[in-house]
C-alpha cells in the first residue's frame, strides 16, 4: 500500500488564457500506515494534489504509482483505485442524498458491486469506526447535527474499505469539541486499522497534535516534507508564505530569546509544558 509521485505536473486549461500551473514537479512517496498532514494556504495546490491520489485529476506530466503500478497506464482500473484511495472532500455532508443514513453509507460498497448484505455489513462497520450512534442509522441524514452528518459522510467513504484515507479539512465549520472528536476518531482509526491517513488542514495546532509527517505546499510546489518538529523549525519561512507554526512554538522561541534555557521544538501544549517545567526545575 504505497503512493508514489514522480515529477508530477498539472496545468489547468493548457493553451488558453486561463493556463495556470497548479502543481510543479512534485515527487514524494507515502507508505503503508503513515499519518501524513498536508498544509498550505488556499490556492497552494493541496486540493489539486490530493485529487491526483485517487485519479480524479490526471497529471499533465509525470507518473503516479499506486502499489507500484502506474495509474496512467492504459487499462488501469480507475474505479478500483477510487475505492482503494478513499477521498473525503471538504464539507462531505453536502454529498449525502439517501433517505436514511445506512443506505447512504451503502452507496460506495454498492458501486463496488457487493451484495446488499455485504454492503450493509460494511456500512455498519464504517459507521462504527467513526463512532456514529446506532440509533440514528434509520434517520434521514438531513436531520442530523453538523458533527453527526460529517461522521456519516466520512463513513460513506470508509465503507469501501480503502487502504488510504484522504481527508480534506475534515473539521471545517465544526465547533472545538466537534473538531477534537473527529480528529481523535481519525487518529483512533489510524491506530486500530493501520490505515494510511492523509489529512489536509489549515490548523497547525491540529496537524502538530496528530500527524507523524507534514508536507507543506506552496504555489504548487512541495516546500517542506518532514517530521512536524523539523517543519515547524522553519516557522519564519512558513510565515513568509502565509502559514505559521503552532502558537506554542512561538512561545518557546520567545522564551529562548528572553534567556530561558528551553528547547524550541515543542509543537504541542503538553510538550511545551514539559519543557518549561524541566527548565524551571533544572
Amino acid at each position: 500500500m504505497s503512493i508514489k509521485l514522480e515529477h508530477l505536473n498539472y496545468i489547468y486549461s493548457p493553451g488558453t488564457a486561463f493556463e495556470k500551473q497548479a502543481l510543479k514537479d512534485i515527487s514524494l512517496e507515502i507508505s503503508q500506515g503513515e499519518f501524513v498532514g498536508i498544509i498550505g494556504h488556499t490556492g497552494s495546490g493541496k486540493s489539486t494534489l490530493i485529487q491526483h491520489f485517487n485519479g480524479l485529476i490526471k497529471a499533465t506530466a509525470g507518473a503516479l504509482y499506486y502499489n507500484g503500478e502506474n495509474i496512467y497506464e492504459e487499462g488501469y482500473n480507475m474505479r478500483e483505485l477510487r475505492s482503494q484511495v478513499g477521498l473525503v472532500f471538504q464539507y462531505p455532508e453536502h454529498q449525502l442524498f439517501e433517505a436514511d443514513v445506512l443506505s447512504d453509507v451503502c452507496f460506495g460498497p454498492k458501486n463496488q458491486g457487493l451484495s446488499q448484505e455485504e454492503c450493509e455489513r460494511r456500512a455498519k462497520e464504517a459507521l462504527d469506526l467513526v463512532g456514529f450512534p446506532e440509533k440514528y442509522y434509520q434517520q434521514s441524514p438531513f436531520e442530523l447535527s453538523g458533527g453527526q452528518k460529517r461522521r456519516a459522510a466520512i463513513a460513506g467513504v470508509l465503507a469501501m474499505r480503502p487502504g488510504v484515507l484522504v481527508l480534506d479539512e475534515p473539521t471545517a465549520g465544526l465547533d472545538p469539541k466537534g473538531r477534537d472528536e473527529i480528529l481523535n476518531q481519525v487518529e483512533h482509526l489510524h491506530k486500530s486499522t493501520n490505515m494510511t491517513v492523509i489529512l489536509v488542514s489549515h490548523s497547525m495546532e491540529d496537524i502538530a497534535r496528530h500527524v507523524d509527517r507534514i508536507i507543506v505546499m506552496n504555489r504548487g510546489e512541495k516546500m517542506f516534507d518532514g517530521r512536524p518538529k523539523e517543519v515547524f523549525a522553519h516557522y519564519r519561512e512558513l510565515e513568509e508564505v502565509g502559514l505559521a507554526a503552532p502558537q506554542v512554538t512561538y512561545i518557546m522561541h520567545a522564551l529562548k530569546a528572553r534567556g530561558l534555557d528551553v528547547r524550541t521544538d515543542a509543537t504541542t501544549v503538553e510538550e511545551a509544558a514539559k519543557e518549561i517545567i524541566r527548565s524551571f526545575h533544572d
Partner: peptide, 20 residues
C-alpha cells in the same frame, strides 16, 4: 460547554497545575 481556549491559555493553565 464544548469550547476551547487558545493554546497559550491552555499552556499557562497546564503550568499552573504543575505548580508554577
Amino acid at each position: 460547554y464544548r469550547l476551547d481556549v487558545p493554546q497559550v491559555t491552555m499552556l499557562a493553565e497546564e503550568l499552573r497545575q504543575n505548580g508554577l
